[in-house]
Computed example of a mutant assay.
Amino acid sequence: MGRPASKNPKSEALTIRLDPKTRFILDYMARFKGQTITTVVERAILAAAANTVITRSDGYEEHHTTWQDLWDVSEGVRALEVSKVPELIPTFEEERRLSFVRNHWPFFFSNEKKQHYLNHYIDVLWPRIDEFIQLHEDMKHMDYYAAGNAMLDALKNAKLSPPKWPPEQKSTPPTKGSGNFSRDLDDDIPF
């Protein structure tokens, strides 16, 4: 028999400094609404977030992004979604993780279009993502697929059926003399 689900499966403590006036206002709001201070703060954050919208235009129409578009129960998916939004100013490490995930897409996405996440893989791999990235950096000159092979082992240890790795190459790009490039590209330069 499994453990009963707790009321709050995972919560985090937040310590903030308030001046006496702000603390009084917070106590006042909690008493007035019959809520805990935590509930008052959570609801104020939700109200503020509901009004925080990132708007982007692609030249044809406007796209709106809110926190709800980025939220996922999976920590790894949340982190990846946030790292794709320039307005949220992703750090170098966030961009590095996103690049690694895109290059090792079979472990993170359902197909090469990279539109749908594989949460069950991400939940296993994400706690060790920096380890896999470092392995890739250290080994890519000798064994480009080393990090992928380590991720395969991690998924197998979690009793998950791993993806096909390395992915099959669709086709090789044409080379000079293969029929598609019969002349030197430098011939087009007029000087």
Rank of each mutant, 00 (worst) to 15 (best):
S57V: 03
H64W: 01
S83D: 08
P190G: 12
D27H: 15
D186A: 13
L70I: 06
P106G: 13
K170M: 13
E12Y: 07
V82H: 01
M142L: 15
I133P: 02
R31I: 00
S171E: 07
K114Y: 06
K164G: 04
S161P: 01
S57I: 04
D188F: 15
K21G: 15
M139P: 02
L118M: 08
V101E: 09
S99M: 10
R97E: 07
D69N: 12
L70H: 07
I122W: 07
L80S: 02
D184C: 11
P20R: 08
R23I: 06
I54V: 14
N111T: 04
H116G: 02
P174K: 06
Q35K: 14
S83G: 11
D72G: 02
W71R: 02
I129M: 14
F100V: 00
H120T: 14
L26D: 02
T15Q: 07
V82L: 10
R17Y: 09
A13K: 09
P106M: 15
N119M: 05
D187L: 06
Q169H: 05
K156D: 14
P190Y: 05
K84R: 15
Y145S: 03
A47I: 02
L160P: 01
V77L: 04
I45M: 11
Y144C: 07
S99N: 08
M29S: 08
E42M: 01
F107P: 00
V82S: 03
I133K: 08
P86E: 15
K10S: 12
A150G: 05
E62M: 06
T36E: 04
E93M: 10
W165L: 13
E93V: 02
D187I: 02
Q169C: 12
W105R: 00
F32S: 06
K114G: 11
S178W: 05
T66E: 09
G179T: 01
G179A: 06
D72V: 00
D186K: 06
T172D: 13
D27N: 14
S57R: 07
W67V: 10
T55H: 05
G34N: 01
I189E: 15
R128N: 15
A79N: 10
F132W: 00
A154D: 13
T38G: 08
N111R: 05
A79F: 02
E95R: 14
A30V: 06
T66W: 03
W71V: 01
K156W: 05
H120P: 00
L46V: 03
V82D: 02
G2T: 09
K176R: 12
V85Q: 12
W126A: 07
H136M: 00
A147G: 05
M142C: 09
H141T: 14
R78E: 01
T172M: 13
N157Q: 14
L135F: 01
W126Y: 11
F108W: 09
E62F: 05
N51E: 15
P4W: 03
L80K: 04
D19K: 10
Y144M: 12
F32K: 08
P190R: 14
N157V: 06
R96Y: 08
